[in-house]
């Protein structure tokens, strides 16, 4: 028996919006510690890892570990039927072939339930080791989204370089080239507006902008984003989900032929 009640149901709606274009089908894993997902895009270039910790739910009952295969397009269709202020409860029976999403309006005067068929998904789980990254950049998520969007109008790839001077995003294409440099700044008024760079070693990596732009659909989940980079390793683009968990995107770099 599984019963997870999330008072801020809009978070789940936003999570689905953030990942449904990157991944079509995914297994949601439910355990004592939380509700999680790890899935790769079809070309095995990008990976999304979601964690919603059990203590972030108002009610969390998971009698045994359960993996539920869901089509994210269909799940998103159902969650779109929930109001932004609704409380969402996810229910499933052990060994059942469906999951139920229950939506309650804040005043409790409207209750809906949507049952969705589960599917068997043969997904490949990757073992991602804990890594000490050479450089970690924390910046406003809207700023990162703006840079990725702007640069993708010029080129297909971006070189992200972190040095003691700041973080530089560079691209080039048929019409020309562009560089955006964000320097470390400390905002007294609002920590969310800060750009903070922790660097042990300078790093420069090349990534496909198409994927980074897809990750920025998670911008609504968090005011800040963290980019963790090491030489010759995938970048980790992390959005914290208030008080409850995180969504992390891993993107393999491009290398020169």
């Amino acid at each position: 028996m599984l019963e997870l009640r999330l008072v801020q149901g809009s978070l789940l709606k936003k999570v689905l919006d953030a990942i449904k274009d990157l991944v079509t089908d995914a297994n949601f894993d439910c355990s004592e510690s939380g509700f999680s997902l790890q899935a790769m895009d079809s070309s095995h270039v990008a990976l999304v890892a979601l964690l919603l910790r059990s203590d972030g739910f108002e009610h969390y009952r998971c009698d045994r570990n359960l993996s539920m295969g869901m089509n994210l397009t269909n799940m998103s269709k159902m969650l779109k039927c929930a109001g932004n202020d609704d409380i969402i409860t996810i229910k499933a029976d052990d060994g059942g072939d469906s999951v139920t999403f229950m939506f309650e309006s804040p005043s409790q005067d409207k209750v809906s339930d949507f049952e969705m068929k589960l599917m068997d998904i043969d997904s490949e789980h990757l073992g991602i080791p804990e890594t000490e990254y050479h450089a970690i950049v924390k910046m406003p998520s809207a700023e990162f989204a703006r840079i990725c969007r702007d640069l993708s109008t010029i080129g297909d790839t971006v070189v992200i370089s972190v040095s003691k001077d700041g973080v530089k995003f560079s691209t080039s294409g048929d019409i020309g080239s562009a560089n955006v440099v964000c320097r470390q700044n400390n905002s007294v008024d609002n920590k969310d507006n800060e750009t903070v760079i922790e660097m042990n070693e300078p790093v420069s990596l090349t990534f496909a902008l198409r994927y980074l732009n897809s990750f920025t659909k998670a911008t609504t989940l968090s005011n800040t984003v963290t980019l963790s980079m090491s030489k010759e390793l995938p970048v980790v683009v992390e959005y914290k989900i208030a008080e409850i968990g995180h969504i992390r995107f891993y993107l393999a770099p491009k290398i020169e032929d």
């Binding site: 790769m40 070309s43 095995h44 270039v45 990008a46 990976l47 490949e124 789980h125 990757l126 073992g127 991602i128 080791p129 790839t157 090349t206 496909a208 390793l233 995938p234 891993y250 393999a252 770099p253 491009k254 290398i255 020169e256 032929d257």
Partner: peptide, 14 residues
């Protein structure tokens, strides 16, 4: 030209 790497080049299947 640059070549796109796969995640399998970095992480083990587990």
């Amino acid at each position: 030209m640059s070549q796109q790497q796969s995640l399998f080049s970095f992480y083990s299947r587990g």
